[in-house]
Amino acid sequence: MSDRLTCEAATENMPFLAVLDAIDVHVCVTDFETHDILFMNRKMRMDFRADAAGRKCYAVIRRQKAPCPDCNNRALMAKSLLSPDDPIEWESVNPVTGKHYIHFGRAIRWRHGQMARLHVSTNITRLKEHEREWRTIQNQLLHSRKMEAVGTLAGGIAHEFNNLMMVIQGRTSLMMMNVDASHPHFEHLKGIESCLDAAKDLTNQLLGVYSGRKAKVASTCLNDIVDECAQIFGGTRKKIHIRKKYERNLWKTRVDRKMIRQVILNLYINAWQAMFDGGELTITTENLSPDETFCLSHDIRKGPFVMCSVGDNGIGMDPPTLARIFDPFFTTKGVGRGTGLGLAAVHGIIRSHHGTITVKSGCGCGTRFSIYLPADLPAAHLSD
């Protein structure tokens, strides 16, 4: 008689179990007291590569030798007495599958009135990845807008500063006309002129931060600028070994050669300063078409680009430094050793050319800057 009743009960449960097997989420039923698995649906059996009915849930699902420290069985039991339909919800990463899940736990009556735990887990890994990507895009767009605002301010200051310097330069020149080398004020006036030259360099850097600066663009092969700067730089830095990997048929790009030369030399100098005792500087150029996610996150149009990366095997940067590396007036150098405008100017110049710049670094892992500039291709090529 008991065998017949068991068979009938199993037959009654077959449609219910078939539904659970058809669901594309993890469904597991475990005994409250023993933690034995009473049922695993098909999706869960596939992902854990076994039908683990009869085994301990913590051993199968989390590869542990004892019940999980954060097991909420007791909370579920207490909750079931108050409101059986109210589950407990939480998120976690499973150490076996490496996936991120949202979990729902509930106390239920299983066969023969046995109290059990119904555990349903939905894989939300892709959703979490999209959330991270979206946060990255938001942060990068926010930084881009901040740089535009600061750049506009810097550009306005630079123009006003330039006007004041022109007046000082003019008055100094007038004074120099009536002063010879024997005059006691001659050296002071020469010192003023020297300071004015330094101020002009500072103004040029500020104007580089300002993305609205007028550029004299022409179709150019970036390899020519990159290699010309490498030869100038390499001739004065004997401890630096330069490794070049140029795209042979690099697409042309419309740039202001003078501005881009400033960008490339600035990146070379930054790499050199990160390698105190010498090291390897790697220069790479490449044709590529960034995907839509990259273009959206860096606020550039989709299409063909020319990329140039400058990498070093120096000391690298920690995350807080990396987050501020393009901010105007931020510098890792000591007081009086830098204006903090070099990389800000680089960022501003590249943005003024409708491109973008990225940086990857880590403490002790070196640094790699990559600039992306729109390719100057014939219309027929763009339509292919």
Rank of each mutant, 00 (worst) to 15 (best):
G334F: 01
R243D: 13
E91A: 14
E193M: 06
R132N: 07
L20A: 15
F39Q: 12
D86P: 01
K239A: 10
K252L: 10
K128H: 09
T34P: 06
S383G: 11
N249H: 09
G303A: 09
Y58S: 07
S80N: 11
T122I: 12
L189W: 05
D291P: 01
F32N: 09
G151W: 02
G208F: 00
Y246V: 04
A199N: 11
K239S: 09
G191R: 15
F294K: 00
D51E: 12
R243Q: 10
A9S: 09
V217H: 03
G113W: 01
A18I: 01
H119D: 06
D327G: 01
D327N: 14
N163C: 02
D256R: 01
K333D: 01
K56E: 11
V226T: 08
I157Q: 01
F330H: 13
L382Y: 03
E187D: 15
H112C: 08
L164V: 13
Q138L: 07
P378M: 10
L196I: 09
N72F: 03
A181H: 12
A271P: 03
V335R: 07
G151M: 11
S219P: 07
F276D: 08
M275L: 06
W90L: 08
I102D: 02
G170Q: 11
F39S: 14
R55C: 06
R257F: 08
C7V: 06
L153Q: 08
T282A: 11
S370A: 14
A375F: 00
F16H: 09
T285W: 02
K43V: 04
H241M: 03
E160M: 05
D224E: 15
G340E: 13
H185M: 14
L343V: 04
D21I: 02
G316K: 11
A218R: 02
